[in-house]
Design a protein around this nucleic acid. Structure first.
Lengths: 235, 235
DNA sequence: CGTGTGCTTGAGTTCTGTCAAAGCAAGTGG
DNA sequence: CCACTTGCTTTGACAGAACTCAAGCACACG
């Protein structure tokens, strides 16, 4: 169940048996969500750390006029913030984009890790630091790049994250995002996303169906995106 | 020296004497920088956590064509990532925007805090979580808002951060950012920033000189920015 | 008092957004 | 197995926000 997380942490360090068994015991209480459900809502008091076991979710925030910004994706093996429980209220929501299974990890479990499993605590802190680097890089992506490069960049990132978690070995990944989702992620309109996707397809860089994304020419896609994977901190 | 940090942490919890004296003892080794110097450079191996004691700095990343994105500001009392030292290389740079004094906190000091000062460790983790919330909110700002709202939003945020760290009691703050800096922060060009700033001045929302920003009408500025301070997690 | 850095302005361009309608694919129910 | 719904994608015509290039200005500083 937690193998994708373990795979991801391997990019930082090799975990010992003790740590691995602790990790495997983490998903005590799990919960099943339908597509489009809120795992946690802005304003709510966070009482547990969430670990994605299945499906996609996103961090998002809605403006009063109904427009929405997606600020991050959570896939299999991703933890939402290790220390959310320190906050008295969430400043954003987490919503599923597909049917999903999520484990709830209690504050006590986290505390226990920090007390008795220093190696694991370090590995998880590392993972949080990488998540923050990803968030920061999204600012660069939206702030500096053209629509075409933004989309290409997001695709490159998700492919590498899939690879890092051992969810694919080639350049084909699940792609449950609608064009509206992509627009809300990249600061564009869905109309424009549509036109740019067509351009990427015309250039034979990708194939994209409702369920699957394939980078036909990953190197070419990276070039369009000006992609540099340093911020993902992969081994 | 570390009072701004202490002020900031007060928004999470009241620290005991033991924690306060630990905090005050932190800035062992400090370093002075000129305006525009790099505190740490992309690619470098981070060996210490930096704490701003004086001046402004920014997190930034440069593209191969020379264009740059600023992804965050560090002011008096701000810590760069608590766990940077876990990374083998920086994925962005930190550069001063004014003459600045920075304390270097060793990995050992951080470890000691996590071992012997659990309350302080929690407070610092809280602070890091808030920093992440700010980073995420910048994505929303750049992705969803018009130029005018973006600029107004950044100004509101910096004023509240100044207030939270006890660096101002009204709505006047230092503003060492050039229009080019603002442009690099908000995904705009400096020419456009200039025109929008004029609009904000015309509306009597702000005065802005080379050194100082005043929100003449903070409520009005917040309105233009659609500003909601929930993400700053102030008490 | 020259020099440089940062600010301001103008004219023309382009990228992306808006609005509105139509098309298509997948699923549902009769 | 076919109408019907629903959600998502595609297209077109037009508008506007922000960019580019280029030049001039102003103030701080040595």
């Amino acid at each position: 169940m937690v193998d994708p997380l373990i795979n991801k942490l391997q990019h930082y360090t090799d975990l010992g048996k003790k740590e691995l068994s602790m990790l495997r015991s983490l998903p005590g209480r799990t919960k099943r969500y339908e597509k489009g459900e809120y795992v946690i809502t802005e304003g709510e008091n966070p009482v547990a750390v969430h670990l994605m076991l299945e499906g996609w979710a996103c961090r998002c925030k809605m403006l009063s006029d109904g427009r929405e910004q997606i600020m991050g994706y959570l896939i299999k093996g991703d933890l939402c913030d290790l220390h959310v429980t320190l906050l008295s209220h969430m400043d954003h929501s987490i919503r599923t984009l597909t049917p999903a299974t999520v484990a709830m990890i209690s504050e006590e479990s986290i505390n226990q890790i920090f007390e008795d499993y220093p190696d694991l605590a370090r590995a998880l802190s590392w993972s949080m630091t990488v998540d923050e680097a990803i968030t920061r890089h999204w600012i660069l992506n939206i702030g500096l790049r053209t629509a075409e490069a933004r989309i290409a960049h997001l695709f490159c990132e998700m492919i590498l994250r899939y690879q890092a978690s051992g969810l694919t070995r080639d350049t084909t990944i699940d792609m449950p995002l609608t064009q509206v989702n992509l627009a809300e992620t990249l600061g564009l309109t869905s109309v424009h996303v549509n036109r740019v996707l067509q351009r990427l397809r015309q250039k034979n860089l990708i194939t994209l169906t409702r369920k699957t994304l394939t980078a036909l020419d990953f190197e070419g896609l990276k070039e369009v995106a000006e992609f540099n994977d340093i911020y993902l901190h992969l081994r």
